[in-house]
Amino acid sequence: MKETVITSGRMNPGIDPVLHAWGWEIPIYLFLGGVVAGILFFAGLYYIRGKSEQYKATVKIAPLFVPAMLSIGLLALFLDLTHKLYFWRLYTIIRWESPMSWGAWILMIVFPLSLMWIATFIEDIFPNWDWKFNFVKKTVTWLTGFQKWMAWGLIITSLILGMYTGILLSAFNARPFWNTAILGPLFLVSGLSTGTAFIMLISKSHEEKSKLGQIDLVLIAIEIFLIIHMFMGFLASTEVQIHAAHMFLGGPYTAVFWTFVFTLGLIVPFISEALELKGFKIPVVIPAMLVLIGGLILRFIVVDAGQSSRWLYKFVEQLQ
């Protein structure tokens, strides 16, 4: 038998007895970052494939929501900082080893790029739009000539953005539950899936909705594969990672994860989109909302569970 006690009584706020450095702000941001990555990826993709008119919601309308989503996400990140007045320090240096540094810089590219993208399409969507100043109008007309380049830019940066939301967590080997290379691809695919779900909600074209539903079906299948693969990897790994997996296989996260994320967030939308493909009439709002809510809960659970998994001082486990 072995019993560990901190006899000097360490109780640093936010650290003990269980790490709670990151609260609601980080999962909200990771979720919105994922949705944005999904929206921008498909906007760029369908523009390049020459389907801007056919898939109007994907290419032109959904990106209109991106700046607001990014702003809310960035506001959440800002609220999470504890030394807020120094946030600009992020932009005085590029640190290749720090995923948070690339995240900050990639957002510096994605945000203006999304604004430029929207600007070049806004007159298509709002025919009475008036730029008021002539130089703005001229700049936008000039930018319109670069739409193809911007579309490629969107595809590349959105993939990096979607991937980084997972790598941000997986780079921490101190938290065994996060320390898996699967997390990057998992968050990317989940982001693309929530992005398609969002576009499906706002699209009015039946053809577009059905195409996105088919894409989402594939994305959900990949997500299910990655989740199973992630747990297989944990169970085949070291003690701390086996322990991390057991938090979801009988431990405190079991019910919430397998009910809300796996069943309601993946399996149910998968079945309903598959039935839709077979010709059954299912309102698109059902799979789309389930995917979005499932994606949000996934991020909350992953951020929380990572902080509960550790190498040392397993006091809570000792009590069980």
Binding site: Y86, N173, A174, G306
Partner: peptide, 21 residues
């Protein structure tokens, strides 16, 4: 201190939980 933004990445990265805000 005046380069730290308080993002807490270092806190979560430390396997010894040696840091705090």
């Amino acid at each position: 201190h005046d380069e730290c933004i308080g993002c807490k990445a270092c806190i979560t990265s430390c396997p010894y939980d040696a840091r705090y805000v």
